[in-house]
């Protein structure tokens, strides 16, 4: 029986993530009496959706076998530009479009570094992360902006019915990315890029194009995340992406998308973002120093990547037998 469960867990795409989620929810409700209250759950959902929006596009990049470490500071840059434009009195739809355009540009840049120059993705995007942080500092001239226009902040704190707007944005993004990744040729190519089945079927130039598109998807969701984050904080600051750095990668990996590429999907990232946010929430509620949150993320990511690599090698042994 145990062995059957073990085999099932090894073979199913999201089984491990879902198991971890169940344990984390159980643990959280036992550790704090306030976890299962309506208010706290809404808070958790809202925090989850910001983290999820930021990491949703990364799912596509990781599926290609790449990584994007520039998301947190790209989101901050978009937030800073959006805030400055709003202060200049530019209308909200234009501001949002401009923000998303910045995300597209960053995505194209990353995609070209990886696709054409063949730089290792983490080197290229770590470099981009430093550059966009520098640009944010210039945009803000070293200052912080508070108090954005009243009709902008609902993007981060408003509700439609009982659902917070960030949650709705997250749900829409999940649907869109599910469709793109599972139902289109582009999606199939993205999976193939990560599993090395690509070379047999397509030309090198096509693979560059698909790589760039994956990074652009990532840049766009980073931009949307930056806009939502800015609206929620009702402030913009060049360093506002700092605390999200590794959390974004951890959410994707936690959701069972393999860093080796080719395996996983967007629903995993939903679960990953939930698990991670609940862990953060518990750390907050039980009053442990917030400095320890980053340690928790560090440990979680090392363990999850290890689990992924470990189960992959087990599965390969199983399939050989």
């Amino acid at each position: 029986m145990m062995k059957r469960i073990g085999t099932y867990l090894l073979q199913s795409k999201y089984a491990i993530s879902v198991t971890v989620l169940i344990f984390v929810v159980l643990g959280a409700s036992l550790a704090t009496s306030s976890f299962l209250t309506g208010d706290n759950l809404i808070t958790v959902l809202r925090q989850t959706s910001v983290l999820f929006i930021l990491s949703s596009g990364l799912t596509a990049v990781v599926l290609t076998g790449g990584i994007d470490l520039s998301i947190n500071n790209s989101a901050a840059l978009v937030g800073c530009i959006v805030a400055q434009l709003l202060l200049l009195g530019v209308s909200i739809p234009v501001v949002i479009l401009a923000g998303i355009l910045v995300g597209v540009v960053i995505g194209i840049f990353n995609g070209l570094l990886v696709g054409i120059l063949k730089l290792p993705p983490f080197v290229a995007t770590y470099g981009t992360n430093m550059v966009v942080l520098g640009i944010s500092t210039i945009v803000m001239q070293g200052k912080v902006i508070y108090d954005l226009p009243r009709n902008f902040t609902p993007i981060g704190v408003g509700y439609v019915g009982i659902l917070p707007i960030p949650v709705i944005i997250a749900i829409v993004l999940t649907g869109v990315l599910y469709f793109v990744l599972q139902k289109t040729t582009l999606g199939r190519n993205i999976y193939m890029l990560g599993s090395n089945a690509y070379a047999a079927k397509y030309s090198a130039s096509r693979s560059v194009l698909d790589t760039v598109v994956a990074y652009v998807i990532c840049g766009v969701t980073a931009a949307i995340g930056g806009i939502v984050l800015t609206a929620r904080l009702n402030a913009a600051d060049a360093n506002m992406g700092n605390s999200y750095g590794l959390q974004i990668v951890a959410a994707v990996v936690m959701g069972g998308t393999s860093l080796l590429g080719g395996e996983g999907g967007i629903f995993g990232t939903v679960i990953g973002a939930l698990v991670l946010t609940i862990i953060m929430n518990v750390i907050n509620v039980i009053g442990v120093s917030s400095y320890l949150q980053s340690m928790a993320v560090g440990i979680v990511i090392i363990l999850m990547v290890w689990l992924d690599i470990f189960t992959r090698s087990k599965r390969e042994k199983l399939s050989r037998v």
């Binding site: 990584i67 470490l69 290792p120 983490f122 750095g245 590794l246 990668v249 860093l259 400095y291 320890l292 949150q293 980053s294 340690m295 993320v297 560090g298 440990i299 990511i301 090392i302 990547v305 290890w306 690599i309």
Partner: peptide, 20 residues
Amino acid sequence: KMKLPPFIATLGMQNILNSV
């Protein structure tokens, strides 16, 4: 021993050490 790619192992360690 755990066979993690170096960049992700050390990125995790970066967070842990910054916490300390």
